[in-house]
Design a binder for these strands. Structure first.
Lengths: 211, 211
DNA sequence: CCGAATCCGGCATGATACTG
DNA sequence: CAGTATCATGCCGGATTCGG
């Protein structure tokens, strides 16, 4: 039985044929910060059901968007990660995040709140071309730490702390969300104590277009 | 009964809560070139089924992404159109088109081929910032004509011919698709006669990053 | 414990028929 | 033209089970 398709000669429709099924894009979003194991994916996707996750991973693998890899011993566990084709989806996620974030209010009780998701929102907020912002930084939020590297054209977030970061930025998840959103200025967040930066805030303000 | 949701505090997930159901994004894509009637949407979405189209239009209306409008007499027919929030989705479609187009081969027999869809691919291909490309142009393909207006930051496609365009570009749909894709150069297309431009091709080459 | 496969009730989808 | 009603089918979500 053939996969269902929109059957249109159109880049958008074809993208949605590959990515538009329920959970597909959300799974890929969770792979943006690096490889993940099956169980990690399950934990980050409340409600998915193991069978459907398994099926989606197979479809995305068959489409060349993700690969299954086996970590070297002693870890020896299998992980899923984006292929270069999958990495090419980053602009799609940035656009979705920039559109969706302003419509997201305060976290509701039943909502799953995850530090990785706000890291992705920050990645989407990044504006290339800021001068003098290059370097490695650290973001701490919701009990997690991320290391991010800025170059003039690119930003790269990874899970885990940074060594000798140029600056460390720390705030809770809703504050960072409002910041990524443009609802809250950097100045106001620093002044109220909702956000702390150790090191020089100037390059960060430039890289994220914050005032 | 509550709509189903990914229940995550994340801009991407929230966007997909509003847009991720089957057909939603494809319907919105078909509104990118201007308002459409119910039947026009049905014709452009083979396989949707009238009930589902009706339901999706209601959902998108309730979410503030589209509006229902009644044309002034004597037309007096109701059309659906993007709200400003819906217009804000353009970057999402551009990103999806740019990702999906390279994976789209030649049109297959069962695929629905539509001139509007290639116009959207051209819109997605547009690179802002080209100097000296401002003006009104016409695109003719697949039996349809489009008028597009270029400013330094923006391009705007509309259905229908242009008056006194600065240039007219004409080719069939697969050729334009390959061009939007980068698979075919402007030079090669002109030389082979697959594409014709009346007027000056230089500003078009600049605006679309074509060689 | 990790990484699934299987089964099942319920809802979403797709096609057709029908109505204001 | 612009939808609603109905119905068969298949997809989704949840629980359970099973092999490494």
């Amino acid at each position: 039985m053939a996969k269902r398709s929109y059957n249109q000669y159109c880049g958008v429709a074809h993208a949605l044929d590959l990515l538009g099924e329920r959970w597909s894009l959300v799974i890929l979003r969770n792979l943006l910060l690096g490889p993940k194991r099956y169980t990690d994916l399950l934990d980050g996707l409340p409600g998915i059901g193991t069978g459907l996750l398994s099926q989606r991973l197979k479809e995305l693998d068959a489409a060349g968007i993700i690969t299954r890899a086996t970590l070297p011993p002693p870890a020896a566990s299998t992980v899923y990660q984006l292929t270069p084709d999958g990495e090419g989806l980053r602009p799609v996620f940035h656009a979705l995040s920039r559109w969706g974030l302003p419509r997201l209010g305060a976290p509701e009780p039943e909502q799953h709140v995850d530090p990785e998701l706000v890291a992705i929102a920050m990645e989407a907020r990044f504006r290339p071309g800021a001068a003098g912002a290059d370097g490695v930084y650290e973001l701490r939020t919701g009990g997690a730490a991320f290391r991010f590297t800025i170059t003039p054209e690119r930003i790269d977030f990874r899970v885990g702390p940074a060594e000798a970061p140029r600056a460390v930025i720390e705030a809770d998840i809703p504050v960072l969300t409002e910041l990524a959103n443009g609802t809250l200025t950097l100045g106001a967040a620093l002044e109220s104590g909702a956000l702390a930066i150790t090191g020089d805030p100037t390059p960060l303000a430039a890289a994220f277009g914050l005032s």
